[in-house]
Amino acid sequence: MSKDWPLWEVFVRARGGLEHRHAGSVHAPDAELALRHARDTYTRRMEGVSLWVVRSADIVASDPDQAGELFEPAASKVYRHPTFYDLPDAVKHM
């Protein structure tokens, strides 16, 4: 039965003001039941105050084979961090 149901990704907001974070996934025939299943699976120990579910198939992911060209060039560009720059003493409140 569960293999006939699509997969949904579950995002849980732990407390008001925090962002929703990925918690895992559930099988469910539709969004309403996906929310119920997410509630029963991922918030039963007070983990959350809000839930999002998204069809796994609707998530567009980057290709792991392209990790080299996508992410490695950033490694050599430390000047993109603001902490790279020495600020003159005269500049305050930066």
Binding site: S2, H27, D40
Partner: peptide
């Protein structure tokens, strides 16, 4: 239960 999700929901 028919699925692990339903299993958990019944246990809850």
């Amino acid at each position: 239960a028919p699925t692990i999700e339903v299993d958990l929901s019944l246990s809850n």
